[in-house]
Design a protein around this nucleic acid. Structure first.
Length: 321
DNA sequence: AAGTTGGGCAACCGCTGGACG
DNA sequence: CCGTCCAGCGGTTGCCCAACT
């Protein structure tokens, strides 16, 4: 546990920043900008020296340098002192965006922050972690909007809590398009690939109720079941269950993934038949999420053609999200 | 009133990758 | 190609303070 390399040169202070230190940094950055963070502490202190002529010499000596490492200065500026920082509670819109983006990109806080002007990655990360803690502690809800319908249909309505103790695969490189290209029902899945992943979360294809199609088998109008696969972590799963009205949760236990996803697809197909009934009854438009909690790695190139994975199918992704 | 607990969050640490000599 | 430096990132720590006992 050594000091960071940039902190070796001289004795640096750690811990909370004092208002004086903040002032030094702000003065320096606003008048000079920041080029090389490692130079900021000394230069900021020098600037402060010229502004501190009225102080006693000893005090000036003591404050000559901003006794922080450049890294600390950078962090302080980016996370706290920057003028465009937006503070205060997250709005519901921001919350939704965070949930959506987190589902798409995982713990890439900087990426998520880039979509929320004025918010820092640190802030979002802290928010997410504390928020999730709260969610986990919450006692299980007893009246999910769809629970009645699902119990009638024999669906398993899961709560996030049921999954939180399982080993989860955090967001991994996305699945490959070709991975399950010959899945028995091509409508059942869409596969998120690379950069398209986030878009899928924003605008799940086929979720519009205006594009309902005839279900040939049942002869009834039925919304297309737009589906996509993703790896999800427990946090995101929790947020879905807790916040999305009309959440439908379906589970496929211990399905295996063979080289073409056939076996998994078959099981999903059975589920889809059940789902179709529900769709007709409820006039709702769900989609599938595939949540993998398999042992070992899953996702992207790491999916070996013959690997066997357990998995969970979660459905419902209302278009209102 | 004093001690304890837990949440919020600022700050730190270690790692990674890009730039550059 | 290799080594060094540095910015940036995500995980983690630890402090502060309010709520609770």
């Amino acid at each position: 546990m050594g000091q960071h390399s940039c902190c070796n040169q001289q004795k640096v202070k750690r811990g909370l920043w004092s208002p004086e230190e903040d002032e030094k940094l702000i003065r320096y950055i606003t008048s000079h900008g920041y080029g090389c963070w490692s130079e900021v502490p000394e230069k900021a202190g020098t600037l402060s020296l010229s502004l501190s002529l009225s102080l006693s010499l000893s005090l000036v000596r003591a404050t000559r340098w901003l006794q922080r490492c450049g890294k600390s200065c950078r962090l302080r500026w980016i996370n706290y002192l920057r003028p465009d920082i937006r503070r205060g509670r997250f709005t519901p819109e921001e919350e939704r965006l965070i949930i959506s983006l987190h589902g798409a990109v995982g713990n890439r806080w900087a990426h998520i922050a880039s979509h929320l002007p004025g918010r820092t990655d640190n802030e979002i990360k802290n928010y997410w972690n504390s928020w999730i803690k709260k969610k986990i502690r919450k006692p299980p809800a007893t009246n999910k909007p769809c629970s009645d319908q699902h119990s009638q249909l024999g669906y398993t309505v899961n709560r996030a809590d049921n999954f939180l103790n399982q080993d989860l695969v955090m967001t991994k490189p996305p699945f490959q398009d070709a991975m399950f290209s010959s899945s028995p029902n091509p409508n059942l899945f869409m596969f998120d690939t690379g950069n398209e992943r986030a878009e899928l979360f924003h605008e799940p294809v086929g979720l519009s109720s205006e594009t309902w199609v005839m279900n040939q088998e049942q002869g009834q109008a039925c919304p297309p079941v737009a589906s996509f696969m993703t790896t999800m972590d427990s946090h995101y799963l929790s947020s879905l269950v807790e916040n999305i009205e009309g959440m439908v949760t379906m589970e496929v236990q211990s399905c295996s993934v063979n080289n073409e996803g056939r076996e998994m697809g078959l099981e999903c197909l059975q589920r889809q038949e059940e789902l179709n009934e529900w769709v007709v009854e409820s006039q709702q438009c769900p989609s599938f999420l595939f949540w993998d909690h398999a042992e070992g790695s899953l996702g992207g190139d790491e999916i070996a053609p013959t690997s066997s994975n357990s998995g969970t199918i979660l459905s419902s992704y209302p278009s209102s999200l």
